[in-house]
Amino acid sequence: MSLIEVKNVYYAYNENSVAIDDVSFSLEEGTYTTVIGHNGSGKSTLAKMIAGLLEIQKGSITINGLAVNAENIARIRRDLGIVFQNPDNQFIGSTVRDDIAFGLENKLVAVENTERIIEEYAAKVGLSDHLDYEPQNLSGGQKQRVAIAGIMAMKPKIIIFDEATSMLDPKGKKEIKQLMYQLAEEEITVISITHDIEEVMQSDNCIVLNKGKLFMQDKPEKVFADAEKLRKINLDIPFVMQVKEVFRNKKIKLKANDLKGMAEELWRLNSKR
């Protein structure tokens, strides 16, 4: 059985705005999944439903065999964390230390261990020297790192990133993405809602939502291989995939899915001729 199973879920904020309409998919443990789609395509709604922050109106979601509902939610939240978009609105404690402690207090971690855990995870996100900083003295990227540390400290199996890098400057974005890839290597199941096409190319699995419906779900290179289909819903195609398409039209097949590999392939191609 898959770690996360979403079956025919439906959510409407009111009669005129159906956010999620009959979406089904399943995600395996330890995979890195990106969710893309335009604003208003239902990405955040879907994330909130998985995290149990919005009630599922129709259909069902099971996580680790447990149905997401009011009864199981406390149990499920021990395995699942979510990092939101706005760095300021998820900083609960008055200092970095207190913020990481917040989740541990909820998890009833013994006080003797709290300090050690806080220091361990602050070090993991590179904020060991900032433990007593207040949020107003941290950059957006640092605040997001605190949020990630706070969630990692609770040792979840799944972490959802709801456009966690969209309000950050390029440096902050890079740092957070680095951390996300690192999580994936630690066998944590990552679901990342993103507009960052390069990040999508790095993921194992890509879900495309359009107007609340599941438009595609596949490996990113397969999703982007059908460029025409994506253009129909006005989604960007990564540069590498665009180059591939041009060559495909000239009956030349390229294998690489990243810039470096493509450069390698292209100069070899040139020297063969």
Binding site: A51, A74, N89, V111, G150, M154
Partner: peptide
């Protein structure tokens, strides 16, 4: 208000249940 909603979500997502037992980091 928007901040308040988002903060409430963030707190809930980190396992906060109003009135439930919690350990205390600050003693």
């Amino acid at each position: 208000f928007e901040r308040a909603y988002e903060l409430a979500d963030a707190m809930e997502a980190r396992g906060y249940v109003p009135g439930a037992e919690r350990t205390r980091y600050h003693i």
